[in-house]
């Protein structure tokens, strides 16, 4: 299990290759990469975070994922600082004996990272700068994991 919070870019291809290599008891690796999207006029995105809390909070999310699914390994990389459109913000990789667990754990980690990891995005646009507001859809996405727990 590996969590990295960094300002520097990461090599998505190399990370995926290293993560998927040398495994004999894993049948599935799922990877996700988040990219800075320009919906019009975006010049840059500034990502602030809470250094003392960020990595421990993400590690707790990974630990929670391990209690829910059969995971062999997980990798989360999340950047902070100033990023421009097209840059890769973050990635998640999960490895599991079977693909259903790898997909579900990656999906779960993404939902938690969106709404529970202490990052805040500020968009710098041609019309000015503003903090990105949390979306209610993100809370709804998170709630389905609690519903799933209740169903068990």
């Amino acid at each position: 299990m590996c969590v990295r919070v960094q300002a520097d870019p990461f090599d998505f291809g190399a990370e995926c290759d290293a993560f998927a290599s040398g495994r004999h008891h894993v049948g599935a690796v799922v990877t996700f990469c988040g990219i800075v999207r320009d919906d019009g006029g975006l010049q840059a995105m500034e990502i602030e975070h809470y250094p003392a809390m960020t990595a421990p909070a993400i590690e707790a999310m990974v630990a929670e994922a391990r209690t829910r699914w059969s995971l062999a390994d997980a990798l989360v990389i999340h950047r902070h600082g100033r990023l421009t459109p097209g840059e890769r913000i973050m990635m998640v990789a999960t490895a599991a004996p079977h693909r259903a667990d790898a997909f579900a754990a990656a999906d779960f980690l993404m939902d938690y990272l969106k709404s529970r990891a202490p990052f805040w995005k500020k968009e710098i646009t041609t019309a000015g700068a503003h903090w990105v507001e949390a979306r209610s859809e993100d809370e709804t996405a998170l709630a389905r994991w609690s519903d799933e727990t209740a169903r068990r």
Partner: peptide
């Protein structure tokens, strides 16, 4: 992460922020 009615006796650090927007 906690609620506003949480006790802070013995705490060292309290952080305030808007809802997170990671990912």
């Amino acid at each position: 992460l906690t609620d506003f009615d949480a006790p802070i006796a013995g705490a060292r650090e309290v952080a305030f922020f808007p809802p997170m927007t990671g990912g």
